[in-house]
Design a protein around this nucleic acid. Structure first.
Length: 644
RNA sequence: GCCGAUGUAGCUCAGCUGGUAGAGCAGCUGACUUGUAAUCAGCUGGUCGGCGGUUCGAAUCCGUCCAUCGGCUCCA
């Protein structure tokens, strides 16, 4: 008998060789039906794999991430099996589970396949699933493994096996399909009830752009049909919120082939919205002791040689701008920090001047690969809400705190309720990868960790993810439909102060090197607006939205009164339009609803007589009659609550 | 940059195997004078992504370039 410890710390005895499934069955039939795999002493195993020694276990179901992973990984095998049956000779790369589903990289050889083939593959997968095929694990020796795939002619698997150690190699057999795999897998394929292939794309073998490109099939599966339907609904909702689509519909921005790829053109409504965001941040920053600066869009190549960016990115940037002077070259600026460093150096600095906080909405240009460009989230010209704080090492902590307060304020004003903080530290085993003294690193890392602690942030700490020049803290928000977006970042930098030979005179009358903090709470205006569009689905907060209200006269007769209402509201700083088209009220309301305008003010005979408006709220309906003043006050109060 | 797909009016989309384009919405004009999600009628609008080629004839077939989309790789 062996002792099995369950998550609730209760200990049960089972015969040696009991399986996770056996344990599940001893607890309840329902659990047995739902168990996907089992965690044994921290390692995920097949539910059917015999447990030979005392162990601490946890039965994994669909509700566990690791359970889902087992489900989707097994689904990748099922898809591979279907593909092998339908396209004999296909060779297989790797087929892992991912956050939402799974993929398999496949070399289809001479077969040309497209998304038109998806239904055929899905059907075959369901057919095989209905057979309730088991996943048979077998331990094989390295020579056996090599022999099997040599015989099959699959060079990808051979490459993978060649890198494995003998004794660590296992195969899994499902029906006629045998795959090299560590496992674990489902008890049988019958648990897979709903199947959907999602995407087809090229993917380099082993992620190396020098190697062959395989065909990657993405798919997702579920234990219940309903769950697949729900998932597809989420995808559909994401499509509806796509900022590229809404940006066009709401007339926020556009692109022109003639202007150039990845160079956004902000339309009046988008520009106003962005300006409002910028002014909001400027106000907050002013209060926090920042000073605005402005810099040109180009800089001499020497500037970037000093910063080190030329050496690293010179080749893949926009080509330098030459001048009539032989050998003189300028670059479009790819970041603002070098310019700001020169501002710091424009005058001798005393410790009394620090911290010096220089802020700029600085537009930068980066030659992103053409295939990388994506709406406003990845562009070649964008504006960072940048600032650089130059301070003494022992001020880092307070400055960090100050920046975090700004980030939190922004999240609150824009209704990002759910966010994740990541702290990236240096790799303790690989300190030579980084620059700066141990003392400074320790001080900075400690400062960041303490600030997170003091602010009660549940930060994820990732050693080894720091930039080579300093530790950083990144913020990821979750949007309204649960997607994660990386936004703001705060980075400590010991590199540039060195490269630019910056100094300040301390209270000891000696020269010292300042520390620099880079920070951008929005990240870039382009990307932030994109995220905001997708988060709000175009229904922007009242303080940001381009048009807060639209006045709808019910007939031509009331246009004059409508104009009067608009001008009254205008005086009270309400952004307001008049719909004086010769249309019925129903049509005007429909169009205003589709344009996502927060308030519609219907005016006719009744209203004209009493200097009132009939208020309809977007997505809600009729709120009844308000005097113009009362309406304006209501709006202004609502705005004040949001950003104060 | 790489693989694959796509590119027809401002927008959404028809256009079979080649015979030089069509709808709805938007826009304009007019009628109606409108009360909480589409009033009616008429009109305008396209070098069918660009350039070459095949053909008597190309939106349709071929080549090439550009852009977009899905991924890969990349992201100071």
């Amino acid at each position: 008998m062996i002792k099995i410890t369950l998550p609730d710390k209760s200990v049960r005895e089972y015969p040696e060789g009991v399986t996770g499934m056996g344990i599940a069955r001893s607890i309840s039939e329902g659990l047995a039906r739902n168990v996907l795999s089992v965690k044994v002493n921290g390692e995920v195993w097949d539910a059917m794999r015999p447990i030979l020694q005392d162990a601490e276990i946890r039965l994994l179901t669909w509700d566990d991430e690791a359970g889902k992973a087992t489900f989707w990984h097994s689904s990748a095998h099922l898809m591979a099996e279907a593909v092998e049956l339908l396209y004999p000779g296909a060779k297989f790369g790797i087929g892992p589970d991912i956050e939402n589903g799974f993929y398999y990289d496949i070399d289809f050889g001479t077969h040309q396949i497209s998304s038109d083939d998806f239904p055929k593959i899905e059907e075959k997968m369901l057919e095989l699933a209905r057979d309730k095929q088991s996943f048979e694990r077998q331990q094989v020796s390295k020579p056996e493994a090599l022999a099997y795939f040599t015989n099959k002619g699959d060079e990808y698997k051979l490459e993978l096996i060649s890198e494995l150690e003998d004794g660590q190699i296992s195969f899994y057999k499902t029906g006629h399909f045998t795959d090299l795999c560590r496992g674990p897998h489902l008890p049988d394929t019958g648990m897979i009830k709903a199947v959907k292939l999602l995407n087809i794309a090229g993917a380099y073998w082993r992620g190396d752009e020098k190697r062959k490109q395989l065909t990657r099939l993405y798919g997702i599966t579920f234990p219940k049909q309903k769950e697949l339907t729900d998932y597809l609904d989420v995808l559909e909702e994401a499509r509806k919120r796509d900022h590229r689509k809404l940006g066009k519909e709401l007339e926020l921005f556009t692109f022109s082939q003639k202007v150039g790829q990845g160079l956004p053109l902000w339309l009046p409504k988008g520009a106003q919205l962005r300006e409002r965001l910028e002014n909001f941040l400027k106000k907050v920053q002013k209060k926090a002791g920042y000073q605005q600066v402005m810099c040109p869009h180009i800089g001499n190549v020497e500037l970037y040689k000093t910063s080190g960016h030329y050496q690293k990115y010179g080749e893949t940037s926009f080509k330098p701008i030459s001048t009539p002077i032989e050998g003189e070259e300028f670059f479009l600026k790819p970041m603002n920090c070098p310019h700001h460093c020169e501002i710091y150096k424009s005058s001798p600095r005393s410790y009394r001047d620090l911290p010096l906080r220089l802020a700029e909405f600085g537009t930068v240009y980066r030659y992103e690969q053409s295939g990388e460009l994506h709406g406003l989230t990845r562009v070649r010209g964008f504006t960072q809400d940048d600032a650089h704080i130059f301070c003494m090492p022992d001020q880092v902590k307070d400055e960090f705190k100050g920046v975090m307060d700004i980030v939190m304020l922004i999240f609150k004003a824009l209704d990002f309720k759910d966010f994740i903080t990541q702290i990236s530290l240096r790799d303790p085993n690989n300190k030579e990868k980084y620059i700066g003294s141990d003392e400074n690193w320790e001080k900075a890392e400690r400062a960041i960790l303490e600030v997170a602690e003091e602010r009660g942030l549940n930060a994820v700490v990732v050693p080894g993810e720091a930039a080579f020049y300093g530790p950083k803290m990144d913020f990821m928000v979750k949007d309204a439909i649960g997607r994660k977006w990386q936004l703001g970042t705060i980075q400590v930098d010991y590199n540039l102060p060195d490269r630019f030979d910056m100094e300040y005179i301390g209270s000891d009358n000696q020269k010292h090197r300042p520390v620099m903090i880079h920070r951008a709470p929005f990240g870039s205006m382009e990307r932030f607006v994109a995220v905001l569009i997708e988060h709000t689905s175009g229904n922007f907060p009242l303080w940001l939205t381009p048009t807060q209200a639209t006045v709808l006269p019910i007939s031509e007769k009331y246009i004059a009164y409508g104009k009067k209402v608009v001008s009254l509201l205008d005086e009270m700083d309400i952004r307001c339009d008049l719909d004086d088209r010769n249309e019925k009220t129903g049509k005007k309301i429909r169009d205003a609803e589709l344009a996502k305008i927060p308030y519609m003010l219907v005016v006719g005979e009744k209203e004209e007589g009493s200097l009132t408006v009939s208020v309809r709220k977007h997505g809600v309906g009729d709120l009844g009659s308000f005097s113009v003043d009362a309406f304006a006050n209501m709006i202004n109060e609502e705005v004040k609550r949001m950003i104060n």
